[in-house]
């Protein structure tokens, strides 16, 4: 593939992923029912993550920009402040691409080390939270230890490339949740105060991150033909 073809391919990939984004953002297919107050988790940010993984941070950035515009124009999103709706979302594809690039070459020992560093960080956050809400801190700590155990077991079963994909999916999705909510608090969007944002983040962000990881792995595995068996691992 020469430079010219790669350039065209980037533009075309970004265009088609943006078409998928619009389809997911504007039709009911993009909303998965989950047991949270909002009732559904969006998957419209997933093409941005996949664009970042497959074609690098620039394509991730462009698809994320399109996602932001789609959300801005969508009649389903009543908040019309570009600093809340568009700007934070620019980071989705870039973060996913960087996480994937960072983890792509990592071996199991390095991944395990990263997992424990993350566990330490979450446990510290849980300690801080437990000083205000004891039950919430304990819940976070139990969830984190459980998550790390499950992640560790999975690490020794699956191959490392899939781990990198899932991590990029989770990172991209959490980027969306955390940055948009932080911007909403900063810009004082109606009804969003810091405690409200934290509870939305926990209840909406975690299922979205899990779903995003599942779908990113499934899609990239089928497009790139990775995984233990060739083809999709559904």
């Amino acid at each position: 593939m020469d430079a010219q073809e790669r350039g065209i391919r980037r533009v075309v990939t970004a265009g088609l992923l943006l078409a998928v984004t619009l389809l997911l953002a504007l039709t009911p297919v993009g909303f998965i029912p989950v047991p949270t107050p909002a009732g559904s988790a969006t998957i419209a940010h997933i093409p941005s993550i996949i664009g970042g993984i497959l074609e690098g941070p620039l394509v991730g950035l462009i698809v994320s920009l399109g996602f932001g515009f789609a959300a801005f124009l969508s009649p389903l999103v009543p908040v019309k402040d570009p600093l809340v709706i568009i700007v934070p979302r620019l980071a989705i594809g870039v973060v996913a691409a960087l996480v994937y690039l960072g983890l792509r070459k990592a071996n199991k020992a390095a991944l395990l080390a990263i997992l424990f560093v993350l566990l330490a960080a979450v446990l510290w956050a849980a300690k801080v939270v437990s000083e205000v809400y004891l039950w919430l801190g304990i819940a976070i700590a139990v969830l984190a230890v459980g998550g790390v155990l499950a992640g560790g077991l999975w690490l020794f079963r699956g191959d490392t490339q899939v781990v990198g994909l899932a991590a990029a999916g989770v990172a991209g999705s959490l980027t969306n949740t955390v940055l948009v909510l932080a911007a909403a608090v900063w810009r004082q969007v109606a009804g969003v105060t810091a405690p409200v944002a934290v509870s939305i983040g926990l209840m909406q962000g975690i299922p979205e991150a899990v779903i995003s990881a599942i779908i990113v792995v499934a899609v990239v595995a089928s497009v790139r033909q990775v995984g233990r068996r060739r083809g999709s691992r559904l």
Partner: peptide
């Protein structure tokens, strides 16, 4: 949803 989305991608 993945069963719908994967063929879409």
């Amino acid at each position: 949803t993945a069963a719908l989305i994967v063929p879409l991608f």
